[in-house]
Amino acid sequence: MKRREFFGATAAMAVTAGLAATTAAVAQDQTYTIGVSIPSATHGFMGGLNWHAQETIKRLEATYPQLKFVLATAGEAGKQVNDLEDMMATRNIDGLVVLPFESEPLTGPVKAVKDAGKWVTVVDRGLAIDGVEDLYVAGDNTAFGRVAGDYFKANLPSGAKIVVLRGIPTTLDNERVDAFQKAIEGSGIEILDMQHGNWNRDDAFTVMQDYLSKYPQIDAVWAADDDMAMGVTEAIAQAGRTDEMWIIGGAGMKEIVKRIMDKDPQFPVDVTYPPALISAAIEMTALRFVSDTPVYGRFIIGSTLITPENAERFYYPDSPF
């Protein structure tokens, strides 16, 4: 059963990580410990991110025996700060891969790690001040909104009416929505409404039900997230209006990718914002310690369109997301 494996893997990881800490000091060869600090799996996207982080660490530890990893997940910013302090104090890490829960509170603690002479990779959410991190790996929120917007512009006639579901109010959500609005500018497409569905299926279901009561004509929905798209499709089915509109989600959840592969008319395409971006960050950080490959700088992962033709490439049936 999957749960068991997960538990086994975690336990094994904890044991190896524990051993690593004790053996690192006595080992003859140069070994490195890399700390990985990410938010815990509170929703679909983060669940996928956690899964990819664990898979990547498993693979890298098998490939490079001289590398050890310490993985910590935090449910809030305060806990993440504690995790970083613990990694510095007790695990003696050489490098850190961190996806800050929030930019402001984490800036100081991450800077302290950097000031102690460690390698720092920051993932997805930038810090409040520039120049702290050696490597920055992130998705492209502007492109996320623009690619979706371009698809709407190209596939809807002037005068078409759409509704938008927004995420949790954050800068990241604003960037996406601004880029989307800019992309459809001048197309004659009318945005009827934009409400927050908080990247949550239940909230999206409720908001979409109300959209459907309010507007007799809706031609398409930008759900902006695959979890929200799942709630939206249920609300539309309940209203019996499945044939009237299509939905564009976002991220690349396996259920949605599957429907694109199956050419479901309700889900023509999807826009990626891959949770596997954490894998890119961990791999590149590992390269820094096992080779002379230059990995400092900024690495921005593009948001691309998943279509029935290329969907195979984005389909991970084993991932929880």
Partner: peptide, 11 residues
């Protein structure tokens, strides 16, 4: 429930 779902969604 998060653990049962492996951090994802139980469907």
């Amino acid at each position: 429930v998060t653990w049962l779902a492996d951090g994802g969604t139980i469907s």
